[in-house]
């Protein structure tokens, strides 16, 4: 993932492979996992809802049994890679109140099923997400994957570490580009890098890159029983560091930094999106401290 970030690769690896893949793997759903891995079927996780704001247990979408089928009703927002997906994995409530941890199931829904209404839109990084309404969408009861909300825990952890690693890659891209820019750009007859204030800004960025790398390594090496917590912490830490480095990179490039013509702006926009993978820094920090 770090290499993807470094190379500013605009492919939905996280959204269309890691997130749904980890979920399907955990559920033992090889029938869908195999075509996903082969790239013949695009799968997306439709979990978030607007009122939920990063609270994973907030699921207002309902799944009601009708004979040997299930009827799904609700609206999912910010479905990453949801615009082009062939199959959606939809979380829906089978019992309990909107914010209960219990009573949530995951259902495989063909994206072209009657009652599925998608609105695709572009995110800051150019990727396509979707807002998806499910209105009386009927699927076979067998479309339910085994597992409840807890089955998201490894998905969230893996996605957070992947996002942190990609952000780290983006940070090194930003840092290296900016370092060479301040060495070559001259103003007042000297290189920008000869001004002490610029040296300190670059040093701060250097420290952030190294600290972020350590958090990513730490989470990657975490024992299984502490992995979710470590990944949450790493993602919160790296997201903040990455945004700071990106803002520094833009500023150090002056006018060039705010254009669409350099990788700098594209990296900033990608970091913005990654920083919200399964919630913002507050959500990740809460998971980190609560799980302690």
């Amino acid at each position: 993932m770090e290499a993807l970030g470094r190379g500013l690769v605009a492919e939905p690896v996280l959204d269309a492979a890691i997130i749904p893949g980890t979920l399907l793997d955990g559920a033992g759903a090889t029938a869908l996992l195999d075509p996903l891995m082969a790239g013949t079927t695009l799968v997306a996780l439709a979990h978030a809802e607007r009122e939920a704001r990063y609270n994973l247990a907030h699921v207002g979408t309902t799944a009601r049994p009708r004979g040997d089928t299930v009827v799904i009703d609700g609206i999912k927002s910010a479905v990453l890679a949801g615009g082009a997906a062939d199959v959606l994995i939809v979380s829906a409530r089978q019992s309990g109140g909107t914010r209960d941890r219990d009573g949530i199931g995951f259902f495989q829904v063909p994206a072209d099923a009657p009652g599925v209404d998608r609105r695709s839109y572009r995110l800051a990084d150019g990727s396509v997400a979707a807002e998806i309404a499910f209105r009386g969408v009927e699927v076979a009861a067998s479309a339910q994957l085994p597992g409840d909300l807890d089955s998201l825990t490894p998905v969230v952890a893996t996605a957070r570490l992947a996002a942190a690693a990609e952000m780290l890659g983006l940070m090194t891209l930003l840092f290296d580009n900016t370092l060479s820019y301040v060495k070559t750009r001259t103003q007042f007859g000297q290189s920008l890098g000869s001004f002490q204030v610029i040296q300190h800004r670059m040093t701060d960025a250097y420290v952030l890159v190294e600290q972020a790398r350590s958090q990513v390594v730490r989470a990657a090496l975490a024992p299984a029983d502490d992995f979710a917590r470590a990944a949450a912490g790493a993602k919160a830490f790296v997201a903040e560091a990455a945004l700071t480095v990106a803002h520094t990179a833009v500023q150090m490039h002056g006018g060039m930094g705010v254009t669409d013509e350099l990788v700098i702006g594209h990296a900033l926009k990608r970091i913005r999106v990654l920083a919200l993978t399964f919630g913002d820094a507050t959500a990740a920090l809460d998971d980190y401290r609560r799980a302690a």
Partner: peptide, 14 residues
Amino acid sequence: AVEMFGYDGLQLAT
């Protein structure tokens, strides 16, 4: 402001 809007704050219409 971007952070306030949660995931909706990520949309970028061109």
